[in-house]
Design a protein around this nucleic acid. Structure first.
Length: 580
DNA sequence: ATAGGGTTAG
């Protein structure tokens, strides 16, 4: 609605501007034809054919005609399509003023892709610098930050310097899509262009956020100190990024320092900042610490919002403290905060994880009664919960219900069910599901493969498992350590110890830590084949990983080595000595 | 703006 209004008023201005110099405006016949053309292009899906048959001799290639069309049409997207047609079918080449009008209208409507295609289609068209500056903002809003940066360089070539605020919104746009590389590129360009004097606190705020996003929180912090020394204070979002960054590095002293800076600068930390702190603590598994901060906040008179309650409830559920979580659930309701689908889901998941499916189902039904529709997340939560208790048939029927109710499945819902099927020995169904996932065009993740490979190894299908591992490799998916443990143990069980040994060496070269059990399986297999040299290699690697040998294995190894009259290397003697 | 489901094995 807004879009249409803005476009319309733009063309109203254009109309008054172009009426004066036009020969056609007095020509009733022309106006009539123009109206007809506008109507046809608006209403007929195949308007091209109609136009050519109805107006065979009309001069579509007159630039004035297109400008008039723009005035009447008031639909920038249709106008762009019409322009395509005119240029390709009627040899029309739009003049500067037509292009200007259309370009500005597209930018005004936020249609950055269309504006870009206009530029691409008309290489001779040179928009006014001010239009390009608006275009930059439009590209940023649309997330097309790479193109936005290119336009800055284009403006530089014609000697036009955009406003600092244009730079700033573009920097923010780059941050939003995670392109910190472009933040630095654009910043370097700012310095070169000579805006350095007018760089403001917002610019620096973007740089601090960029540092945080790249995990260089301390660089961001130093920059903050510099800004503060100049008596400037960035907005809360900048402080929040720093807090989130320091939480990630478990530097809680710094977190508290930032909070104090905020208070001293009168940028009082609000609910969002505390949300960041609590979230950071819970993400770093400092749940009880997070819970403490939460209670402190309440004591100090803060009113946690729904998001904060949801975060804390989830943290308590993860700790297995369902009773505490439930208390908070009722507390928030008492304060007038109605649980939403997020809150319901963490609570349902909490009950599923402790195996209380009855309570989980009760909440699930309650959620639906309150008008929250089942969605892909709530389905996946229940599917995982059912699988965890071995109720895989019910999980499967929920999965089918999803498509009946028109809830689109996603990668996680597939992965969850694959895992559940594997845990319950339904490998054929699990494999079918992996194929279905691929056929649906999803890009599989590590979690799509991990449970299948594990189960295949356990049932003696290590060959099939290794083909899947190869498939992962081809997709540039790196297996987790335990997947390789599974392969090695599987190979040992099949008597293929040599290949198991190869995988162990590969695993260690990839800096993945094998399990103790994996070493023990290999030693057992090698021992049966009397490959004493290889046993020593495995023992060496095992000790380096910090494992110790079990008593029973020591005994069998010692007698084995003695029987072979083998010379013990120093390392093994030390290890054996330690135990005696 | 911030929050929810898969990601060790048991």
């Amino acid at each position: 609605m807004l879009l249409r209004r803005r476009t319309t008023s733009y063309f109203r201005n254009l109309t008054t501007e172009t009426k004066q110099g036009s020969d056609y405006s007095k020509d009733q016949n022309f106006t009539h034809i123009l109206n007809e053309i506008c109507t046809i292009t608006r209403t007929k899906p195949r308007w091209e054919n109609t136009l050519l048959s109805q107006y065979p001799s009309f001069n579509f290639s007159n630039p004035n005609f297109f400008l008039h069309y723009l005035n009447h049409q008031n639909n920038t997207f249709l106008s762009l399509r019409f322009l395509h047609w005119l240029t390709s079918q009627c040899g029309f080449s739009p003049d500067q003023s037509s292009c200007d009008a259309l370009f500005d209208a597209l930018v005004d409507a936020g249609a950055c892709k269309a504006a870009k295609s206009l530029l691409d289609d008309c290489p001779d068209f040179n928009p006014k610098p001010a239009s390009l500056e608006n275009y930059i903002r439009c590209l940023g809003k649309g997330g097309m930050v790479g193109d936005a940066v290119d336009v800055f360089f284009r403006l530089k070539k014609v000697g036009f310097l955009p406003l600092v605020s244009t730079f700033n919104v573009s920097l923010l746009a780059c941050l939003k899509v995670g392109r910190t590389d472009l933040v630095w590129k654009l910043y370097a360009h700012m310095i070169e262009s000579g805006v350095v004097g007018s760089i403001d606190v917002e610019t620096v705020g973007c740089l601090i956020k960029a540092f945080c996003a790249e995990g260089k929180v301390f660089d961001g912090y130093e920059l903050l100190r510099q800004v503060l020394e100049k008596g400037l204070c960035p907005d809360n979002t900048v402080f929040n990024s720093l807090i989130a960054g320091f939480c990630k590095e478990s530097q809680y002293a710094r977190v508290s320092e930032i909070l104090h800076i905020m208070i001293s600068m009168k940028c009082n930390p609000g609910i969002y900042t505390y949300q960041e702190v609590i979230n950071g603590l819970f993400k770093r598994k400092k749940n009880d610490e997070g819970f403490r901060v939460f209670n402190d906040l309440k004591d100090r008179g803060y009113f946690p919002d729904k998001v904060m309650y949801t975060t804390v409830i989830k943290g308590l559920c993860d700790m297995g403290l369902l009773g505490e979580a439930r208390k908070l659930w009722f507390e928030m309701i008492c304060k007038g905060l109605v649980p939403n689908e997020y809150t319901y889901n963490v609570m349902i998941d909490g009950y599923c994880k402790i195996g209380d499916l009855v309570e989980a189902k009760k909440l699930y039904d309650d959620m639906c009664d309150r008008g929250y529709a089942e969605n892909v997340v709530s389905y996946t939560t229940m599917i995982s919960g059912l699988c965890l208790r071995g109720r895989v048939d019910e999980a499967l029927s929920l999965f089918h219900e999803m498509s009946r109710k028109g809830v689109a499945r996603d990668l996680i819902s597939y992965n969850s069910l694959i895992k559940g099927l594997c845990q319950n020995g339904e490998l054929v169904k699990a494999t079918d599901l992996l194929h279905e996932l691929l056929a649906q065009g999803f890009e599989p993740s590590v979690s799509s493969f991990t449970p299948l490979i594990k189960s295949l190894c356990e049932v003696g299908e290590t060959g099939v498992a290794m083909r899947l591992l190869k498939d992962m490799h081809d997709r540039h998916l790196e297996p987790i350590a335990s997947t390789l443990d599974n392969i090695i143990v599987g190979l040992c069980k099949e008597g293929n110890v040599a290949q198991g040994m190869e995988w162990l060496l590969k695993m260690i070269s990839w800096k993945l830590k094998p399990k103790e059990q994996t070493f023990e399986n290999l030693i057992d297999g090698l021992s049966q084949e009397d490959r004493l040299d290889d046993i020593l290699i495995v023992l060496d690697l095992m000790f380096r990983e910090g494992y110790r040998l079990k008593e029973s294995i020591i005994h069998s190894l010692v007698s084995k080595f003695c029987k072979e009259n083998f010379h013990f290397p120093k390392l093994c003697l030390e290890e054996f000595g330690e135990r005696n």
